[in-house]
Design a protein around this nucleic acid. Structure first.
Length: 550
RNA sequence: AGGGGCGUAGCUCAGUGGUAGAGCAGCGGCCUUUUAAGCCGAAGGUCGUGGGUUCGAUCCCCACCGCCCCUACCA
């Protein structure tokens, strides 16, 4: 078939397409024509500067209280720039709204005020164009503060139209791919990212005020470490070496504490080559901070202070609304992991285990067995029933299965099993658990902190155990340079990581991580792939698409 | 990865086994206090892609592509 030939040679041709031939073509051409006519009137198509006195938002902020009489008695002149986001022409006059600085401002353009020439220009403007206006403020019949435009000029042409005005940009994929449109059209989207910036600013303020230094440590790691996760691998050409995109900055930050930076933090991306869902993105932002001469108990107190302060500063209250729930950052519960299992043990599963039972050797296995029997009978997800799992791993499994989803109000779960905490220090009176906690809010893990393991011998043993255990997420080799740093002496130190994206979700009442990440990862957009693929597997004979391996 | 849903005009969506409609946007006309401005007119579509069944497919079937939701792993 001819189609196949075209398909086979199609790739080269597509590159030849004029890059400015965007859909919708007819509107694009129309706007291009308008731009040409504007230039024909003697205007510069893309001028260089517009001197302004107020943003659209500032006009409302500063003069929102002025009455019509006040504005007449004491005229206010403004120069403002922004994007035309609404346009209501009425023949020889028109109303429009321009957006700027996060606010909107109505402008009123009359031919008898601006003159015929300027009005001709105005009529060539399209929705989405960026303009500068100057004029005096007044109030309309409906009492809306507006600019009676005396001068208007085009500052930049929108050759493509804005999204539909009622529904805005509803297509979720387009909202993420073309986030700029989302930001123009959806006020809520804009607010989320303004607030995200505010949250990060407050976090910096919090740590800076406590004598911390902010640092940036490598994003590309020769040896994987600091967490258990599947990595992205990349390659450096000159050194001809494979590198991992970091899964955690932990081991570098602790080197800095060894180096005498006693209080250090980093806010940056981690990369994990794992699933994508409502609370996971392959790259996500973590705050990690380390404080020498401190322990996990102190961190829990500090974390409470940080979260309460953020909620208050950002939302105005320590009690925040999250979906149907109200989450109270003024009160944090604290439960050991074993206590949480006991507390949330379902009554239908028979008598709850005791902390003592969970602490006993082989205890978690017996408890998991009981839960498994119950889950089987009720068709509920059970704990991993592997016989290979250690007591500590089973305890972690039991916690996640039984308790985690219940932790809506801020709750610290502490004393994590040593088996699942390779970087934290064991408790003095019970080596089966470590001085480690995680903070859960709305069923999500938000923070993870512990007293750092600083005994190089113990650390090396635990690293080796991880490597020997194997598995996709285990480190492949022991980071001996890190052990060497510990051998120089790491002070008793407490460290913690906080998932910034999830924190922003909470404080913006967002229920998908992609709502709080400006450009979340999506599958590459390739409209060609489908056609090419399909045409190569075309004929009815049914060669089952040998074409592309997946 | 498994299960479910969706893909029709630039946008938001109807719809039918006989190759399509509305609102908005855009275009032409009227309109000097509107805010989903209004009124009149015309235009706009390889119905995601490819194949199959059929006299005939946008609709039925299969495959593929993409997105969304749920479930499993990870923060």
């Amino acid at each position: 078939m001819a189609r196949q030939i075209v398909g086979a040679h199609g790739h080269g041709h597509r590159k030849e397409v004029d890059p400015l031939e965007f859909e919708p073509q007819d509107q694009f051409q129309q706007r291009l024509k308008n731009l040409g006519e504007i230039a024909g009137l003697g205007h510069v198509a893309y001028p260089r500067k517009f001197v302004w006195t107020h943003t659209a938002k500032e006009v409302g902020d500063q003069f929102g209280e002025r009455t019509a009489e006040q504005l007449t008695a004491e005229p206010v002149e403004v120069r403002a720039a922004g994007r035309i986001v609404a346009l209501r022409p009425h023949g020889k006059a028109a109303f429009a709204h321009i957006a700027g600085g996060g606010g909107r401002l109505q402008i009123y353009v009359r031919q008898d005020v601006v003159g015929e020439e300027t009005y001709k220009l105005f009529r060539l403007l399209d929705l989405g164009d960026i303009v500068g206006v100057s004029g005096h403020l007044f109030r309309t019949k409906t009492n809306e503060l507006s600019v009676k435009v005396e001068k208007i000029e085009l500052l930049s042409k929108a050759l493509l139209p804005l999204p539909e005005k009622w529904h805005g940009l509803a297509d979720i994929e387009q909202r993420y791919r073309r986030r700029y449109l989302d930001l123009i059209v959806n006020q809520g989207a804009r607010e989320i990212f303004i607030r995200r910036a505010q949250i990060i600013r407050e976090i910096r303020r919090f740590f800076d005020a406590r004598g911390y230094s902010e640092v940036e440590t490598p994003m590309m790691h020769p040896i994987l470490g600091g967490a258990t996760a599947r990595p992205f691998v990349t390659h450096h050409n000159t050194f001809d070496m494979d590198l991992y995109l970091r899964i955690a900055p932990e081991l570098y930050l602790k080197r800095l504490v060894v180096g005498g930076i006693d209080r250090v933090y980093e806010i940056n991306r981690n990369f994990r080559n794992e699933g994508i869902d409502a609370i996971h993105q392959p790259e996500f932002t973590m705050l990690e901070f380390y404080q020498a001469y401190s322990d996990y108990l102190e961190l829990m107190d500090m974390t409470e202070e940080l979260f309460r302060g953020l909620a208050e500063k950002v939302t105005g209250s320590a009690q925040i609304k999250y979906g149907e729930q109200t989450i109270d950052f003024a009160r944090f519960e604290r439960l050991s992991m074993r206590e949480a299992i006991v507390k949330y043990w379902p009554s239908a599963a028979g008598a709850a285990p005791t902390v003592a039972e969970l602490s006993a050797e082989g205890g978690p296995g017996r408890v998991a067995g009981r839960f498994h029997t119950y889950a089987r009978a009720h068709g509920i997800d059970s704990v991993a029933n592997g016989t290979k799992l250690s007591d500590g791993e089973l305890t972690g499994e039991l916690f996640e299965t039984i308790a985690e989803a219940h932790l809506v109000q801020p709750t610290f779960i502490y004393d994590f099993p040593t088996a699942i905490s390779p970087l934290s220090k064991q408790k003095a009176d019970d080596p089966s658990v470590t001085e480690r906690f995680e903070l859960f809010v709305a069923g999500m893990e938000l923070a993870n902190g512990f007293s750092e393991l600083n005994d190089p011998f113990d650390q090396e043993r635990r690293f080796r155990a991880q490597v020997e255990k194997g598995g996709q997420e285990a480190p492949k080799e022991v980071d001996m340079e890190y052990i060497r740093a510990l051998a120089h002496g790491l002070p008793p130190t407490a460290g913690e990581g906080v998932g910034i994206d999830r924190l922003v979700m909470l404080l913006t009442d967002s229920h998908a991580i992609r709502e709080v990440v400006l450009f979340p990862l999506l599958r590459a957009e390739s409209p060609d792939a489908a056609a090419d693929d399909a045409s190569s597997q075309g004929s009815s004979g049914g060669s089952d698409s040998g074409g592309k391996a997946k």
